[in-house]
C-alpha cells in the first residue's frame, strides 16, 4: 500500500461521501418542506417528464458518458489498491552513491542484492527470529524498510541498537550515502510451547 493510494482513498471516499451527503440532504430538506415547495408534491412531476422528453437527443448520451467515466475511475480506484511502494532498482551515480539526479549517467543497482545482504546480517544477531527487508520510495530517494521478529525474552534495545549502528551503517557505506531513511517495525515471536507455563 503506497502513500499515494492512501491519499487517493481519502479523496475518493470524501467525494463519494459529499455527493451522498448533498443528495440525501437535499431529498431530506424537500421532505421537510424546504425551498418553499409543497411537501405533498410528487417527486417525478409532469414538468420533469416533459423536460426529459425534450432533451432526449443528448440527455442519455450525456448520462452514459458520465456513468462510463465514473465506472472507469472506480475500476482504476480498485486496481490501485494493489499498488505497492516496493522498489526494484536503486539509482546510483558514477561514484556508486545514490544518484540525486545530477550525476553523470546513473547505473541501476537491483535493490534485492542490498536487501538480501542487510537481511542476512540482521538475521545473524542473537535473538532475531526472522527478518524481512525491502526498499521503497523512488530510485533516487530510496527508503529502507525492515520488519524484524525478535524472540520474546530478548532485549529489544540491544537489537535495535545493533540494527542502527551496524547493519544501517554498512548499507550507508555500501551506498556511499550518509542518508538512508529507514523504517524498522518490530514483531515479537510467540513463546515456544515448552516454556509456556500451564498447570
Amino acid at each position: 500500500m503506497s502513500a499515494r493510494t492512501a491519499r487517493g482513498n481519502r479523496l475518493g471516499l470524501g467525494i463519494t461521501g459529499s455527493v451522498l451527503l448533498i443528495g440525501g440532504g437535499y431529498a431530506g430538506a424537500r421532505s421537510l418542506g424546504a425551498f418553499g415547495s409543497a411537501r405533498s408534491a410528487p417527486i417525478y412531476t409532469e414538468r420533469v417528464a416533459n423536460w426529459i422528453h425534450l432533451q432526449q437527443s443528448w440527455l442519455w448520451i450525456a448520462v452514459a458518458v458520465v456513468a462510463i467515466m465514473v465506472a472507469v475511475l472506480a475500476l482504476r480506484w480498485l486496481i490501485v489498491q494493489l499498488r505497492t511502494e516496493r522498489l526494484a532498482q536503486i539509482a546510483l551515480d558514477a561514484d556508486g552513491g545514490i544518484d540525486p539526479g545530477n550525476g553523470a549517467g546513473p547505473t541501476d543497482l537491483p535493490s534485492a542484492a542490498l536487501t538480501a545482504a542487510v537481511g542476512q546480517e540482521i538475521d545473524g544477531y542473537p535473538g532475531v527470529r526472522a527478518v524481512k527487508v525491502h526498499m521503497a520510495g523512488k530510485p533516487d530517494q530510496p527508503e529502507l524498510r525492515v520488519e524484524v521478529t525478535i524472540d520474546p525474552g530478548v532485549d529489544p534495545a540491544r537489537i535495535r541498537a545493533r540494527i542502527a549502528d551496524e547493519a544501517l551503517t554498512h548499507v550507508r557505506t555500501a551506498l556511499d550515502s550518509p542518508r538512508l531513511p529507514t523504517q524498522i517495525l518490530f514483531a515479537v515471536a510467540r513463546p515456544p510451547r515448552s516454556v509456556r507455563t500451564y498447570l
Partner: peptide, 23 residues
C-alpha cells in the same frame, strides 16, 4: 410518491448518514 412520503424520508436519512460517515 410525494416528497413527504415516509419511504422518501427514510431513504434520504440513510443516504445522508452514509454520506456523513464516508466524509
Amino acid at each position: 410518491t410525494p416528497w413527504d412520503d415516509p419511504g422518501v424520508m427514510i431513504s434520504a436519512a440513510v443516504t445522508t448518514a452514509l454520506g456523513l460517515w464516508l466524509v
